[in-house]
């Protein structure tokens, strides 16, 4: 009787582990489209332990936890930007390599635009002078 219940317990344990023991920290999602979305997001999230690396390329334990979180959320139907927002809410903008558009970051887009405008204005003036 004891033996039967022990083997039953083992069976139940096996059944409780995720399908084929997949740990999404290091294994792909079965759906290639979802996996592509997840990888793209993981490439643009900073590992908060070894801060120069994205979580996709970091061996830190917390980076693995974040990869698991990203894959599970995307498999559950969340959009990559929803997952990014969840992490930004907890760790701040620093965790995302992709700058968010907001007043403080507006110069990132405005300065190149202004530089091109100013440059073409200067160039056009010079060209007009030459023609004379």
């Amino acid at each position: 009787m004891n033996r039967i219940s022990a083997s039953l317990a083992t069976l139940m344990l096996l059944a409780a582990t995720p399908v084929a023991g997949l740990d999404y920290a290091d294994e792909s999602l079965p759906d290639p489209q979802q996996e592509a979305k997840a990888v793209q997001l993981m490439d643009s999230l900073r590992c908060v332990v070894c801060q120069g690396q994205p979580i996709s390329g970091s061996n830190a334990g917390l980076a693995g936890d974040m990869r698991r979180l990203v894959r599970e959320r995307i498999a559950a139907g969340d959009s990559p930007e929803q997952v990014r927002a969840w992490l930004v809410n907890r760790y701040g903008d620093w965790i995302s390599f992709q700058p968010q558009v907001k007043p403080a970051t507006a110069p990132l887009w405005l300065i190149p635009l202004l530089a091109v405008l100013a440059g073409s204005w200067l160039a056009s003036r010079r060209l007009v002078h030459r023609k004379r």
């Binding site: 908060v48 332990v49 334990g61 917390l62 693995g64 936890d65 974040m66 698991r68 979180l69 992490l87 907890r90 760790y91």
Partner: peptide, 13 residues
């Protein structure tokens, strides 16, 4: 086990 609580708290270590 999976660092879920740690991430929910915004803890890095």
């Amino acid at each position: 086990i999976d660092g879920r609580a740690q991430m929910a708290l915004g803890s890095t270590g």
